[in-house]
Write a protein that binds this DNA or RNA. Structure first.
Lengths: 230, 230, 230, 230
DNA sequence: AATGAATGAGGGTTCATTCAT
DNA sequence: CATGAATGAACCCTCATTCAT
């Protein structure tokens, strides 16, 4: 009986100790966790300082870790940056794939979902936008960056063309071209992102979405006319 | 006495020599010309190497001049960059102002001219796009850059809103909103620029313009329907 | 009660497992053996990478062990290096002492044995030469290294002077000075080592020995004339 | 008259000013001069701190110049080191070539000159020896160093073989082999250098030379017997 | 006893800026 | 005006050492 109480107490103690340790910041962490932590710190640093003022030191300090840690986990600064870009590209892809799969079967709903996800939080966080543009800015001189960006783009567009095509067939929009709509829409998206980045005062995520939706309204009037919501 | 005459002669000689040297290099407004030369070199360097790999050395060598020259004319690297950004912003503004003034009085023509100029050479040269994105990439952490970009944008949009408004009134497009169209159109422009930058293979200036024009066709059908040209 | 027996069993099991693991790696004197292992790894690493590119990591990996192991056994890198130098100095001494003791009583034989051992495998292995020269190279700035080297030298020379003296007396080489011969001979030895190190292609251990023996032939003709062998 | 005194004063002043400037260490110097200065500083630093503790900082401070100067003139530390090794190799070669050319035509004199120069100041300065051994110590892992050392060696030996051959022919030393003598002699030289490096207390340049000369006495008795001098 | 993640001082190198020429 | 040698702060990276496990 007292054994039980002891165990109970012991369990409680263990719990407390574990909590304390966690609070003291684990000195050692699973490899992948540390890498994630550093990628997140990189995103914050790029957003805060810009890519050209992001140094090993700013990232490490943003992560609350020591100088050498990045080379320990990523070998070089360049690899950290590539990994960071890859991370947000993956995140982006995952986001619209999920949005798509939970949008139902109606092509119009799918299209709306695709546009929607571009202006929702995880993907459209100011920091993420800053990172995208930071890398786009170096794209011309860094084939590696370009490749990653291009891949993200291609997958996204391919899907959107598909969805547009379905919608065109279904809705009988004979004189609308799926490729063109996709080009317009994805250009508008990144254009709006630029606005969100440079004029955060006069542009909000909601407004940005409305702008893109307005395009859908004019293009597919019978499917988007009344829905100004969401 | 003869001493004096000698000195006079000597001063004269020095002057002549100096003048000849100057003539061999340039003739007028040396100061501003040099600055222009350096700004052009900066544009090329940013396009070639990226902003973070653009150093005083890369710019100087791109200009075929010596190390210290930039500090001599711009005091600091930061100022050179700001001047460069200002330069392409001014160039951009001048370009659409000219386009507008030679477009005639028809609002539709003016709008077409505005879109057109965004995808014509001086403004839409690959190097210029690279520079724009390079600076946009640093925008979040550099208020100065943001301010310059924002001003360029505002003037352009103000004008476009005006033109759209005229067109709406003239064409009786009651359910079209000038602000929204402007937002769509200018977002599409920068979005297409991004494509030109990152996928130069699969996107051309001509295509980009067509994409934007397609938007005008759907939005103002009675004014842009038949003109797929130019 | 059964709890206790379980714990006992468990303790026993742990012990067995641990013992088995130990047995799979080593059996006795773990401490000294580990140190030896690390010293051997150091020798290989210095030979392969040079002293200035020998790091705790190269040594540990050469030993097939983990990072922290060296500090565990040697406290510091400096101590590892000193122990390594001491080790090859000891090995050297042991080698010629053994050679001497198995050479018989004839001074000429002893002298030949001393020369011989300098060019035989354990002592004259390429790796060992590399290590000697690596440390000699740092000798001027590291009194500790110098001291160890000097001691090795002194003992060796003292013995050789002794042997030479015997030979001079025995052979009646009145105009030969034991000290000088020793100086010549030991200089030639290290000089030949240098050649073995830097021109391994054009110099072999056998040649090196012949060169040194040729000196003995000219110096002590009546004792070394006919023996070109071994 | 007062003019004269003025001129005198002025001359004096000029002199003082020039001296002061020189004392303030010329900010700018001919390229080759700076490189020489840095090579000399490297030699001192390697001698003082050893090769593995010679850093850009120790060299720069030894030269009384700033951190960045070495990369300005040598691009990298590695190149500075190679250049330094090349320098002392060249110096060595020049030294014995000069010694040879001022030694007259007698082979014995030439041989004596060759041995002599190895133990005279510019070449046999403690710092130079330290540098030689520092590089020899890294020879096994650095092909570049090895190549430079090997070339120095080859030229020297080739010459010595030649001289020995002349002497053998001239003196009728039929049973002496030029190659062997050269091998012995040059081994003894570097062996003595090692002694000078590690036991500066018990070995002097003069003694070292005597040791080598003693070898010549035994090998070429009819030419070197009486000359213990120089 | 052994591991290997983490640290942080210090290494080589770059580069904006200064300044004598 | 223009040059380019020189500076030195700050960068990225390495590595001896520590320490929780």
């Amino acid at each position: 009986m007292n054994d039980c109480s002891f165990i109970a107490k012991r369990g409680r103690l263990t719990y407390i100790v574990r909590t304390m340790k966690a609070a003291m910041k684990k000195r050692t962490a699973p490899k992948e966790e540390r890498q994630q932590q550093l990628i997140q710190a990189t995103i914050r640093s790029v957003a805060r300082n810009g890519l050209s003022d992001t140094t090993m030191a700013t990232v490490a300090s943003e992560a609350g870790l020591s100088q050498g840690i990045i080379n320990l986990h990523f070998q070089s600064k360049e690899r950290l940056l590539v990994e960071t870009l890859s991370y947000i590209a993956d995140e982006y892809r995952t986001a619209w794939e999920q949005a798509l799969s939970s949008a139902g079967d109606e092509p119009a709903d799918k299209l709306a979902a695709l546009v929607s996800v571009d202006f929702k939080k995880p993907v459209c966080h100011p920091n993420k936008l800053a990172v995208w543009f930071a890398f786009w800015g170096e794209t011309k001189s860094r084939p590696t960056y370009r490749r990653i960006c291009a891949m993200r783009d291609m997958a996204y567009r391919k899907e959107m063309v598909q969805v547009c095509h379905e919608l065109i067939v279904q809705g009988g929009y004979q004189d609308v071209d799926a490729e063109t709509v996709t080009a317009c829409l994805s250009a508008m998206t990144s254009g709006c992102w630029l606005d969100l980045l440079t004029n955060p005062r006069s542009m909000s995520r909601l407004q940005a979405k409305r702008i893109c939706m307005s395009y859908l309204v004019t293009t597919f009037p019978r499917h988007f006319a009344e829905r100004s919501d969401k």
